[in-house]
């Protein structure tokens, strides 16, 4: 597994870049905590899948791509959306089912879209969006616009036929896709080892001659650096690249999850590798962060999230007269 323990400060990036990574992770964490609170208060309905624990994956990978590149992702999609720069107000409004939401209240938590940011959607059929990433990449290739596709999916997707079909096609047509598996060890409540003949997910890519590696998904710099390598590979026209980020979600699969399938000790052990304190310590060691700095970032995240809540709360529900809008493009 690729880790980044003894990295030199100079090689890690500019202070602005590094602080930006921490800022994004803290925003996602706070946003998700607020979402959980709003769900408990009945402001958010449906399924709500929190990204808490996995922030380093979305933030690290986003740091490796350009604004013009495409992102497609799974239904645990708030983190990648925030990292991509979608408006937190409009995301929260979507969770509230308001007309000001990123998807005008038609999609909810699992289906966030913002085409202006090339965030091409959260998709909630496990593995069903991998074929789309091939298509977006094919379009980029045919149009020679230089865009690559970053496709996030979970470990639950790797036993779907669409996963294998997509990897094969991407390799055969040398499509510019970075396949990024967020392996949080459980497909809903099922331990990956109980249902996968090969639980080291990245090894599956070798069946399709796609270069692949595993990375510590709790280490934001390690994720970013591997993602950069993957992105460069695809941008150079060498075809797809596969990254497995080993991570862990600290909360249940969704808000409805009683978590019978894993022990408190296991969760506690993973919490000692919480990506946010890990990176915070790293920045302190490098002299880039102190208590006051942390307080500032916390206050900032708190402010953004409170504003998102206020915005969502004050936004109107969709007008029922718009029920039939956008079934077809006219």
């Amino acid at each position: 597994m690729t880790t980044a323990k003894a990295r030199a400060k100079e090689e890690a990036g500019t202070p602005e870049e590094l602080l930006g990574l921490l800022r994004q992770m803290m925003l996602i964490r706070r946003f998700e905590e607020k979402s959980a609170e709003m769900y408990a208060r009945g402001r958010i309905a449906g399924f709500l899948h929190l990204y808490i624990g996995q922030e380093a994956v979305g933030v690290g990978a986003e740091a490796a791509i350009e604004p013009d590149d495409y992102v497609v992702t799974h239904y645990r999609d708030h983190g990648q959306a925030l990292a991509r720069g979608l408006d937190p107000n409009a995301i929260m409004a979507e969770l509230f089912g308001r007309t000001t939401g990123v998807s005008k209240g038609r999609g909810g938590s699992m289906h966030l879209f913002d085409v202006s940011k090339h965030f091409m959607g959260g998709y909630a059929i496990v593995g069903g969006h991998l074929p789309l990433s091939c298509g977006l990449a094919l379009a980029s290739k045919q149009l020679k616009n230089g865009r690559i596709v970053l496709c996030f999916f979970g470990d639950g997707a790797v036993n779907q036929g669409e996963f294998h079909e997509a990897l094969n096609l991407a390799a055969v047509w040398r499509l510019p896709v970075v396949f990024l598996c967020e392996n949080n060890l459980y497909g809903m409540g099922t331990d990956i080892r109980r249902v996968s003949a090969e639980a080291e997910v990245y090894r599956r890519a070798c069946a399709y001659n796609i270069p692949a590696e595993q990375v510590d998904g709790m280490d934001v710099l390690a994720v970013r650096d591997v993602a950069r390598k993957a992105v460069q590979h695809t941008r150079d026209g060498k075809g797809p690249y596969f990254v497995e980020a080993v991570t862990y979600r600290f909360r249940g699969h969704s808000m409805a999850d009683p978590e019978f399938y894993r022990t408190k000790e296991e969760v506690q052990q993973w919490r000692t590798r919480d990506p946010i304190p890990l990176f915070e310590r790293q920045l302190r060691d490098w002299g880039l962060m102190d208590d006051a700095g942390i307080k500032r970032l916390e206050d900032e995240a708190e402010g953004v999230v409170n504003e998102a809540e206020r915005f969502a709360e004050e936004s109107p529900a969709p007008d029922v007269s718009t029920l039939y809008d956008n079934v077809y493009e006219e």
Partner: peptide, 16 residues
């Protein structure tokens, strides 16, 4: 078939 159609959908989204 699934990836062929899905690839068609993605390509259409991407401007083809």
């Amino acid at each position: 078939e699934s990836v062929v159609v899905g690839c068609g959908i993605g390509a259409a989204m991407g401007g083809m």
